[in-house]
Design a protein around this nucleic acid. Structure first.
Ligand SMILES: [Zn+2]
Ligand SMILES: [Zn+2]
Ligand SMILES: [Zn+2]
Ligand SMILES: [Zn+2]
Lengths: 132, 132
DNA sequence: TTGTAAATGTTATATTATTACATAGTGTTA
DNA sequence: TAACACTATGTAATAATATAACATTTACAA
């Protein structure tokens, strides 16, 4: 059973915006969009983003410095994430594949390192862009 | 047979610095370190970094905005990269594991997307930090 | 030797993210 | 309730990361 997090005012405003967006959003584009709701400073956005990432409601797409809502309710609090990114239209989807996540969660190399978290980003062309 | 790239002056200066570093280097730390060699502006650093990434001599650690030399001569021009990152001491190693790279290169999900590239970052504690 | 692509130099600016400090709300427990 | 700890907010300033625009030079092949 996952812990229930009651989002604060700013967190809710920012999560709702990201959640209803069809594409990853960047911090300053979020800021621009929530100014009418009284969020005026970058820090207010970054603080909410940090918290939302921490509790697993959103993920950061590292290669794009952008944020998307978690599309995978079983996502273990952002500890195991995989995305597909179209290099043409920049569409991003969260990959939910049990085999893949098991494979990666159990991966151990020779370096003797114990992994607690991973992030995987695949790049290519989405179906739509491929057929153009 | 891999194409031979003759590095230009700036590319060589910057590659040498990254290559002999024991940790990932950030762009502005590189800039600071090469100013005595006549490289004065961020853009000169970023241009060399872009080229070095493109030809696979270095990789960008996306979660850290930092660069390390490729430790894996068979790395297919930065198209398939995996790293282990210690969250305590920030040590980064490039993972060279044939099974893993085969698994990921052949991965195809249901979305019908053809991947041409991936980047994987594992996080955890390195051997040294684990035993502290 | 001339054309072309790659690389360089320089200035300015855009984008992304954090530090520092003051204040306010929320929930728990004495 | 009062005291406390913890989380969240507001605001200003600034740090860190990255790119745009333009002029010039170098490498090198046709
Ligand atoms: Zn998720
Ligand atoms: Zn696409
Ligand atoms: Zn490599
Ligand atoms: Zn370590």
């Amino acid at each position: 059973m996952q812990k229930q997090h009651n989002l604060s005012k700013n967190q809710k405003i920012i999560f709702d915006l990201i959640d209803k967006s069809s594409e990853p959003l960047k911090a300053y584009s979020i800021l621009f969009n929530v100014q009418k709701k009284g969020i005026n400073a970058p820090l207010q956005v970054y603080r909410a983003l940090d918290k939302l990432v921490e509790i697993g409601k959103i993920h950061k797409i590292e290669s794009r410095n952008a944020f998307i809502a978690c599309q995978n309710s079983s996502c273990q609090i952002s500890k195991a994430t995989a995305f597909s990114i179209c290099e043409s239209c920049e569409k991003v989807s969260e990959i939910s594949n049990t085999k893949l996540s098991k494979y990666l969660s159990n991966f151990a190399d020779e370096a003797g390192m114990k992994y607690s978290k991973y992030n995987l980003e695949f790049f290519g062309l989405c179906k739509k862009c491929k057929s153009k």
